[in-house]
Nucleic acid binder design. Structure first.
Length: 494
RNA sequence: GGUCUUGUAGCCGAGUGGCUAGGCAAAGCUCUGCAAAAGCUUCUACACCGGUUCGAAUCCGGUCGAGACCUCCA
């Protein structure tokens, strides 16, 4: 595909991407609720959108990337029961709610940095937009899509559904939803069980509460995204993303709020990333089987055999499509580690390649085609897996050229330049992968050269005991010596 | 129960109505003092049963299996 196509969850098909106001693109992604640590499943979603953001920028778009921080104390459900997560965590940790917010916001940002994610261009907080949320509620009430009861305000789904349609995104209809709720018979103030809270009255015990026309209270969960996306991206914008699990009810309610308040469908392209499983089971906070990102990085977890670089995890994510479920396990992590190393080493070899070709060869054509295919694949709904396959194909050519299996005369200098650009473009810029380790520590390099020279001397004297001892012991410490075809010796880290 | 997704070689994982993705693992060869790394070669799969078609893993129907959402979650 020569132009970017995106699978739109709303229409359930791939569509050509046409921004409303090219070259500008508005991208909104639902961010984390900062009441405890993000887990690896969250990281998968955010790194998927990081890749998507990077690719849009790579394509020349000017992207406004908004990702919110949910820091208001929402209830664990909409029915007026449940607990305020921010406050219960605050009690648990004996901290102020805002200390909880600060602690886990900082933690989230640290993880984002470790995983080499670009910052959004705007990262708004729910508590920073209470006034705007109240304004949207007032608009919805004026239009007859919301009603107040005992200091709380609810969205009137039935009233909305008379003018518009509720449930399109998630493929639900109101009658079935109501039927599903019926056995939970109306223990609350809502007109209808499917109505959801826009504003909840707070009891004096609630620490996080704000003044509103309906008394002290706090906003409903779905409202902040409607408000902040409208404020920063407009009533209608290009892409809205989030995890699959937010499709219903969160995104459905968001659409209803936006349509109700503004009269237009807010989002052109809905994108949903799929869940991450570990050893076959969904990783989730509520199941209690989530391994923290930092535990992967340190290897400090009973289910892990060793530490894995954040880049290995990122690469593992990229090897499958963002919209597929991904099950990870130890074997998968190990495979990804090897694969990433292979690509990174191929990339570092390119700089030293000799190309003397003057006429277009079959290899030149092969390189040109594979490089061009990267873009075609990415344009097909961000097919990172296929793009990676192209890079592996190119890696074989690079290694062959280095080893002399392909002669320098068979490749034009322009092809090597293209290889270098392609690896930098996709591996580094779009995929956001960093070389596994920098070995530009000059003192280490000098020390390594001393060992390499000693080994070389031992080999010349046929003292293989010594030369093998150096090689084996370095390998045990994670440094691999490589005897190159030309007699030189290089090293890499395992 | 409702809505939806999915079932691909030892493992992971892309995919298009006809042109054997890719990675990891395994085997053989080249290279090597021996290795490692790298290169080459081999392993040709698409849950099952029907149907549409000149042709289907790809479309349709059914069967069986797996999963997600319908309640807080990315």
């Amino acid at each position: 595909m020569s132009e970017l196509h995106i699978y739109n969850s709303l229409t359930r098909q791939k569509e050509k991407f046409e921004p409303l106001h090219a070259p500008n693109v508005g991208l909104y992604v639902c961010g984390p609720t900062v009441y405890n640590d993000v887990h690896l499943g969250n990281v998968r979603t955010f790194s998927s959108f990081d890749m998507i953001y990077r690719y849009l920028v790579f394509c020349g778009y000017k992207v406004r990337y908004v990702r919110n921080i949910t820091d208001a104390g929402h209830l664990t459900n909409d029915r007026g029961e449940g607990v305020n997560r921010m406050e219960s965590q605050a009690k648990l940790e004996r901290l102020e709610p805002m200390e909880i917010v600060q602690k886990y916001t900082v933690g989230f940002h640290e993880i984002c940095t470790l995983f080499n994610m670009k910052s959004p261009t705007i990262e708004p907080t729910a508590t920073g937009h209470i006034i705007e949320q109240i304004e949207m509620i007032e608009t919805l009430m004026e239009k007859g899509f919301a009603y107040e009861k005992n200091g709380s305000v609810y969205f009137d789904v039935n009233a909305f559904n008379e003018t518009y349609t509720y449930g399109e995104l998630s493929g639900r209809n109101i009658d079935e939803l109501i039927a599903g709720y019926r056995d939970l018979d109306g223990q609350d103030e809502k007109k209808n069980s499917i109505d959801f809270a826009l504003w909840k009255a707070a009891t004096p015990a609630h620490i996080m509460q704000w003044r509103s026309p309906w008394g002290m209270g706090f906003p409903g969960w779905h409202l902040e995204c409607s408000v902040m996306s409208t404020k920063y991206l407009g009533k209608e914008f290009d892409i809205h993303g989030g995890g699959m699990d937010l499709k219903f009810p969160h995104h459905e309610c968001e659409i209803a709020q936006n349509v109700g308040a503004c009269g237009t469908a807010p989002v052109r392209y809905w994108m949903h990333t799929n869940m991450l499983n570990f050893n076959g089971q969904k990783m989730s906070k509520s199941l209690g089987n989530s391994i923290l990102p930092i535990e992967f990085i340190t290897g400090n977890h009973p289910l892990l055999d060793k530490a894995y670089s954040p880049m290995v995890l990122r690469f593992l994510f990229l090897q499958s499509h963002y919209s597929s479920e991904l099950d990870i396990n130890i074997k998968g992590l190990q495979d990804a580690e090897k694969g990433l190393k292979r690509l990174m080493e191929a990339r570092s070899i390119i700089k030293n390649l000799n190309a003397l070709g003057s006429e277009l060869s079959a290899t030149d054509t092969q390189i040109a085609e594979a490089c061009a295919e990267c873009k075609t694949n990415m344009n097909d709904d961000f097919n990172t897996a296929k793009t990676i396959a192209c890079l592996f194909e190119l890696s074989s050519i690079i290694n062959s050229l280095k080893d002399g299996n392909i002669k320098a005369e068979q490749v034009q200098p322009a092809s090597v330049a293209l290889l270098e650009k392609t690896f930098d473009d996709y591996l580094i810029d779009v995929f956001g992968l960093k070389p596994l380790e920098d070995n530009n520590n000059s003192k280490l390099d000098v020390a390594m050269q001393v060992l390499i020279d000693i080994r070389k001397e031992a080999k010349l004297k046929k003292d293989f005991a010594t030369s093998d001892k150096i090689r084996h012991e370095l390998l045990e410490k994670g440094i691999q010596l490589k005897d190159e075809k030309d007699g030189s010796v290089s090293y890499s880290f395992n």
